[in-house]
């Protein structure tokens, strides 16, 4: 069974005239790494809020259609129950952090679940080390830089060891090397622990290579949904104006001039490898 399944999901925020998402029918299987993208204001964040029940339980408004996550009907199960299964990392870490020390922030969710002390310690240390902030564990989050705060937010969700992790532009405040490391870690969580990942990102240059599926939204609707290489090379993706990776654009340019590589690259490594093959023939 799909780990997330929606059927004609439509939602309108309280007081809004226009729907924010409309007729979304998607199925995400366990263990997938899904990249969710689209122009700003297209409804990506709203859809993510449905995955862990913030919509409809916190935001209210009008939700129509069906949504099931980890076999649970989101409408019938409260946020705290869904939170054991679905972790959400927000765009802005300040919305998420509140404790007086990094360690306490990361432990908070686990304490609420009534997990034994010893296990909390282990999980918190693991999450802090995985996100490279173990040395900051006694610092207050509000004193940290934007990038460090974002790592704390990721660690707090990671510590819950959820089946599904939804990350809404989780590295936007990080420097490129920091961002790359976080994406690699997310990829590892997906590969090694089998956590289903839904990553919201505009920067496909950095992330397309990790995904086994890309969903593109525009105006509250799902426009494209499929394999990264096919989607990123499609005319439709170009017209919506998403950030096609530079190497994919380079491939398209060469293709247009008659140099056919017959393989859509998603990263510089893939492109360099392909070109070396061609040049050495």
């Amino acid at each position: 069974m799909a780990i997330i399944e929606t059927e004609k999901l439509t939602y309108t925020y309280p007081g809004a005239e226009k729907t924010s998402i409309e007729n979304i029918s998607i199925k995400i299987e366990e263990g997938e790494f899904v990249l969710l993208t689209g122009p700003s204001g297209c409804g990506k964040t709203t859809l993510c809020r449905c995955f862990n029940g913030l919509i409809p339980h916190f935001y209210e408004g009008k939700l129509e259609g069906k949504i099931q996550v980890v076999g649970l009907d989101v409408v019938k199960h409260p946020i705290h129950e869904l939170a054991k299964h679905v972790g959400l990392v927000f765009q802005n870490p300040e919305n998420q952090l509140f404790a007086l020390s990094v360690e306490k922030d990361v432990a908070f969710g686990l304490e609420n679940l009534g997990i034994p002390r010893k296990e909390i310690r282990q999980r918190v240390d693991w999450a802090l080390k995985t996100t490279d902030i173990y040395h900051l564990r006694e610092r207050p989050p509000y004193e940290l830089s934007g990038g460090q705060q974002q790592r704390v937010a990721i660690a707090s969700v990671l510590a819950m060891q959820p089946e599904v992790m939804v990350l809404d532009e989780p590295t936007s405040f990080l420097d490129p090397l920091g961002a790359k490391r976080i994406f690699e870690d997310i990829h590892k969580l997906n590969k090694e622990l089998g956590i289903t990942i839904i990553l919201v990102e505009h920067r496909l240059d950095l992330t397309a290579k990790y995904a086994n599926r890309i969903i593109i939204m525009d105006n509250g609707k799902v426009i494209l949904n499929g394999k990264p290489r096919e989607i990123l090379d499609s005319e439709k993706a170009r017209l919506i104006g998403i950030g096609i990776p530079k190497v994919t654009r380079l491939y398209q340019f060469l293709n247009g001039k008659g140099m056919r590589l017959n393989y859509v690259p998603l990263s510089s490594e893939e492109m360099a490898k392909k070109l070396k093959e061609v040049f050495k023939q």
Partner: peptide, 19 residues
């Protein structure tokens, strides 16, 4: 030194310096 990775195109070309 500044935790920055070269842009994608630059990384392709750095790999191709042998040509």
């Amino acid at each position: 030194k500044a935790a920055i990775i070269p842009p994608e195109i630059s990384r392709v070309f750095l790999e191709l310096s042998e040509f």
